[in-house]
């Protein structure tokens, strides 16, 4: 199949590329853009490690083709860091609550939680766990992650 020209913004940076139609957004971000913070844990849309924001909405980048992002604004974990460096409120809460160990699922979780708190600034614990159920973590038993999301929500400036 013929390659397709796409234009999009990734973490605020305009990008043009010519990509095969079957190239996933995840592989485009990792390989073509060099943004390796987006991780692939299953490539079938269950683990959530590849979660990115597509026009502000959390999506699994392994289930989206790069051509579907034509014209869109994509935000990856690299784009969540405040302009001057340092950590976002969600990232800070994760660090403070030992919400990561190996770190492989972490970028997807940070992106998912950022999107979740934007829509649910005052979640209950049950809502937090429900929201997290789309992201698999094999290290933490989710204990610190739930605490971190609650703490980020309580700070009120998570997004």
């Amino acid at each position: 199949m013929t390659d397709v020209d796409i234009r999009l913004r990734v973490n605020g940076v305009p990008r043009r590329a010519t990509v095969p139609p079957r190239l996933t957004l995840a592989d485009f971000l990792r390989t073509d853009c060099g943004l390796t913070g987006t991780h692939l844990g299953c490539e079938h849309g269950v683990c959530g490690a590849c979660t990115v924001l597509l026009d502000g909405e959390a999506v699994r980048a392994c289930l989206v083709f790069a051509v579907q992002a034509d014209g869109a604004e994509v935000t990856t974990v690299e784009g969540l860091t405040p302009p001057g460096g340092g950590l976002s409120a969600v990232q800070t809460a994760f660090r403070d609550h030992h919400a990561l160990q190996c770190g492989f699922c972490t970028p997807g979780l940070v992106v998912s939680v950022t999107a979740f708190l934007a829509e649910h600034p005052r979640p209950t614990d049950e809502e937090i766990r429900e929201a997290l159920s789309g992201n698999l973590c094999r290290c933490t038993g989710y204990q610190g992650i739930v605490d971190a999301v609650r703490a980020a929500a309580e700070r009120g400036d998570a997004v």
């Binding site: 990792r30 974990v77 990232q91 660090r95 990561l100 770190g103 970028p107």
Partner: peptide, 19 residues
């Protein structure tokens, strides 16, 4: 003590083998 590893892993700056 806060983890030494966290700053890079939280910001997508880790280096796993696929990176």
């Amino acid at each position: 003590v806060p983890r030494v590893e966290d700053a890079r892993l939280l910001t997508g700056a880790g280096t796993y083998v696929d990176d």
